[in-house]
């Protein structure tokens, strides 16, 4: 059974335990940061940072809101990066879980094209061109453990399990919050394995929260093809196809 994450941003309090747990499990080095006038740090995802809690201050309905978005790879059901790579030795899908896994072989790929292919702008490259991103904690998951970020979340905002179970949980929670937040929704739930619940329009959280928000300057042919197929499929899904 494919696995999925449910990230309930309505419960996230940006303690960033997930961000640290990710670094700890993957033994990733800390980046040298400075305070840039925000709590959010590091400023962006990087080769050494697979998870960043985005923090945005917005006014919604006359009230100040501080929105938190623990960003990570969505592990798309049909992953444009995987298709753009066309090299299962570099980027492959773990059939047991649905995880999209990058290997050291990504060094051989056109890194910029892969990054460009991602509808969420997630993969990041090392100076030598090797790519990295969230790996689903695939080693933990194959050994019966939850991903490190899910395990550590004290707010109950992060969940992991069989896709059906997670979809049902996300649907139920959405119905709950819709009562007070009519704009609430699940982001790209039918297309990804990491499903976010948001209370407001995804773009309020951050520019790449939802696919299609990003307007790439240039696209590879393959990606362009993918982009053409994707909206169709979305429409079909919406029609109950």
């Amino acid at each position: 059974m494919a696995k999925a994450f449910f990230i309930d941003t309505s419960l996230c309090m940006a303690c960033r335990g997930c961000q640290v747990a990710c670094k700890q499990w993957h033994d990733l080095p800390a980046e040298e940061t400075t305070n840039r006038g925000s709590y959010q740090n590091p400023p962006d995802l990087s080769f050494d940072t697979y998870k960043v809690v985005r923090m945005t201050e917005v006014v919604e309905g006359g009230r100040l809101r501080w929105l938190f978005f623990p960003e990570q790879c969505r592990h798309c059901l049909e992953a444009p990066c995987l298709e753009a790579a066309g090299d299962p030795g570099a980027i492959y899908r773990d059939d047991a879980t649905g995880a999209i896994i990058y290997t050291a072989e990504t060094r051989q790929l056109d890194a910029d094209a892969i990054i460009e292919a991602c509808p969420y702008n997630v993969p990041r490259k090392a100076p030598d061109g090797t790519l990295a991103k969230c790996d689903f904690c695939i080693d933990r998951v194959h050994n019966g453990l939850e991903p490190a970020c899910v395990k550590t979340c004290p707010a109950g905002a992060m969940h992991f399990g069989d896709r059906d179970f997670i979809l049902a949980m996300a649907g139920k929670r959405l119905a709950e919050v819709k009562k007070n937040y009519p704009e609430a929704g699940l982001i790209d739930a039918d297309e990804v394995s990491v499903i976010y619940l948001v209370l407001y329009a995804p773009a309020r959280y951050y520019q790449n929260a939802m696919a299609g928000l990003r307007r790439p300057a240039a696209m590879t042919r393959k990606v362009a093809l993918q982009r053409m197929v994707s909206p169709l499929r979305r429409m079909m899904n919406a029609l109950g196809g």
Binding site: V20, A30, T33, G37, S38, N41
Partner: peptide, 26 residues
């Protein structure tokens, strides 16, 4: 890993105060 998240002492202030003092974010 924690210093990466909060590397420095900061002082939080309103945009109104910052403007009156000519201070920019960061």
């Amino acid at each position: 890993w924690l210093m990466e998240l909060q590397p420095q002492v900061f002082v939080e202030m309103s945009p109104q105060l910052a403007k009156s003092l000519g201070i920019e974010n960061g």
